[in-house]
């Protein structure tokens, strides 16, 4: 059992790059549409929610609502982008397109392929989060240069959510099951993590719950960086995100081994 698991783990620290490059090559063919999509989404959410709602709300924690919302949206867009890449595009490559099947005939292991897919999903999350941040910066809600600290956090957030979504991908019999993950996990997380309103608005029990949510930790890191404020418990938040990135990855390798290699 352990031996079988060991045989499918990543073979070395660089094998995954070939999988990432395959996805990058495919993405390049439609890069312009992808980038435009990544820019259009933050504009709707920031301008729509930010200014519409912001006019009613006024300020939050002593800053304009749009500034508060921007950091939440950066983390959220990384979450959504990494999740959708994994449950839709990766699932297709594993299932209908047989991309993994051909890769499994080479010297790559299943772990190499999964790691490459996660790194790719994290890259797309970085792109989406950065696009959101650029829009926020353009309208003056991102401080330079502290905002640069947010970039690795966006990538880590993407990796963590891709890793979580990989478990869903490993277990889902078809596309129809992904809706449960979205409605029962992602949507509640958006409201429990302080993305659109402060966590302090929540009943105490939900405030406690938010400490467990990866999106909350991501926002706790990104918001201070974007607003150039001192952040607290940086080590704790980074560690939490790392756990969400690493543990589901190793679990998904085993789940996918059982699914694909039996």
């Amino acid at each position: 059992m352990w031996k079988r698991y060991a045989a499918v783990l990543p073979a070395n620290p660089w094998n995954w790059v070939a999988v990432w490059r395959r996805n990058y090559m495919a993405w390049k063919k439609a890069a312009i549409a992808s980038i435009l999509g990544n820019l259009a989404e933050p504009m709707t959410s920031l301008f729509g929610l930010g200014f519409g709602l912001g006019a009613m709300v006024g300020g939050v924690d002593g800053i304009p609502y749009v500034a508060f919302l921007a950091a939440g949206m950066v983390a959220t867009s990384a979450m959504i982008s990494a999740t959708f890449e994994t449950i839709h595009a990766t699932f297709a490559r594993m299932h209908a397109k047989r991309t993994w099947e051909s890769a499994l005939c080479t010297q790559l292991t299943l772990g190499d392929i999964i790691l490459g897919e996660l790194a790719w999903a994290a890259s797309k999350a970085l792109l989406a989060g950065t696009a959101m941040m650029l829009v926020a910066a353009t309208i003056g809600y991102a401080s330079w240069p502290s905002v640069l600290f947010a970039l690795p956090v966006i990538a880590l957030t993407g990796f963590a959510f891709a890793s979580l979504a990989m478990i869903v991908t490993a277990l889902a019999p078809s596309y129809d099951y992904f809706i449960f993950y979205q409605t029962l996990f992602l949507t509640p997380m958006l409201f429990l993590s302080g993305a659109v309103f402060p966590v302090t608005q929540l009943p105490d029990i939900f405030q406690q719950l938010s400490h467990l949510l990866p999106l909350a930790h991501s926002i706790e890191l990104i918001r201070p960086a974007m607003l150039d404020r001192p952040g607290g418990s940086v080590g704790l938040h980074i560690s939490a995100l790392c756990i969400y990135a690493v543990v589901p990855f190793f679990l998904s390798v085993e789940l996918l081994r059982r699914r694909l290699m039996c």
Partner: peptide, 9 residues
Amino acid sequence: LLVFGRYFG
């Protein structure tokens, strides 16, 4: 061929 060759390192 390029993608597949890269899978072999």
